[in-house]
Simulated assay, not measured.
Amino acid sequence: MSRTDNLLPRQLGDSHIRLLRIYKAVVECGGFSAAEVELNISRPAISLAISELESLLNIRLCQRGRSGFSVTEQGEVVYQAALQLLSSLETFRTQINAINTELRGELNIGITDNMVTTPQMRITRALASLKQQGAEVTINIRMIPPNEIEAGVLDGKLQVGVVPALRNLQGLNYYALYEERSELYCSSEHPLFAIDKAELSSEVLSQYDAVVPAYPQTAAIKQQQSRLKASASSTDREGIAFLILSGEYIGFLPTHYAERWTDKGMMRALEPQSRFFYTPYSAVTRKGARPNIILETFLQELAKTE
């Protein structure tokens, strides 16, 4: 087999781009099963697409089977090349959009978990306005941890992100959105649920297991957390809620997120007058990014929601 047998055709068509997009999603999701939801196609269809791409390239891209999913060394090279190609395509689309008044293309946005219940709904209203102005705009939302959002905006995979403003990275622009209040909660199954407020001293609370965040926090927030008996952790707020609802842990949750359980009597706040903190949230974009009419329109609509 000659060296040219494992090259893509000189002219890439939509079918080749589609295969590369599927492969990119499979790698980022960590396997075929997880990619089903991301791609909204069946696992057999994903498997067929990856096999077709491997045949086209004459390369084994990934290992899959009972031992699990893993990307081969050559597969990693193809993945990185695919990122560059797809990013270049989006850059081209962005540049064309910049000289065209019609909104057409993609907005790739990363959002911290469990913010949909935030009462201000600034992001929701801005997305609605963007879609009303550009029916051809495709909005892609990724719910991922703040550090992954920051990294995604910096490397161009995301045009904009919404993160807790706990630090300022040099390569990002920050647009303040709002402050989120969090309070200390226990569930109705927990011994503290029935205890009178007057008896909820620091000494009493420190005797009970608590779940704390495994993601970055400000010094002030860490000080609140340090008063607790930390015996569990979670990478997101949903995990914290799971452990609180088990009846075995206490922990801090955003008030807007905990409302669904406090309204039903399934949770209560513990000493809300003194055990609370505020987390500022910001939208972030990459400094020096090329002009993007879709992103600019979204940011303009976001500013109007103040």
Rank of each mutant, 00 (worst) to 15 (best):
E28P: 01
E28W: 01
E28G: 03
C29N: 14
C29T: 08
G30D: 11
G30Y: 12
G30Q: 10
G30H: 12
G30A: 11
G31P: 07
G31R: 04
G31D: 05
G31I: 06
G31T: 09
F32S: 00
S33F: 10
S33I: 13
A34K: 15
A34Q: 14
A34G: 03
A34D: 15
A35Y: 02
A35G: 05
A35F: 05
A35M: 08
E36Y: 05
E36L: 04
V37Y: 07
V37G: 06
V37N: 07
V37P: 00
E38Y: 06
E38C: 14
E38K: 15
L39S: 09
N40F: 09
N40R: 12
I41Y: 00
I41D: 01
I41K: 01
I41P: 00
I41H: 01
I41M: 15
S42A: 12
S42W: 03
S42G: 13
S42F: 02
P44R: 03
P44I: 03
P44M: 03
P44K: 01
A45K: 13
A45C: 08
A45F: 08
A45E: 14
A45I: 07
A45M: 13
I46R: 01
I46P: 00
S47T: 06
S47N: 09
S47L: 12
L48R: 13
L48T: 08
L48W: 11
A49I: 07
A49V: 08
A49S: 14
A49P: 04
I50R: 01
I50F: 04
S51K: 14
S51D: 11
S51E: 15
E52I: 01
E52R: 15
E52M: 11
E52L: 11
E52G: 05
E52H: 14
L53R: 02
L53P: 01
L53G: 03
E54M: 07
E54N: 06
E54G: 09
E54W: 09
S55W: 04
S55G: 12
S55M: 07
L56H: 06
L56N: 09
L56W: 06
L57K: 11
L57A: 14
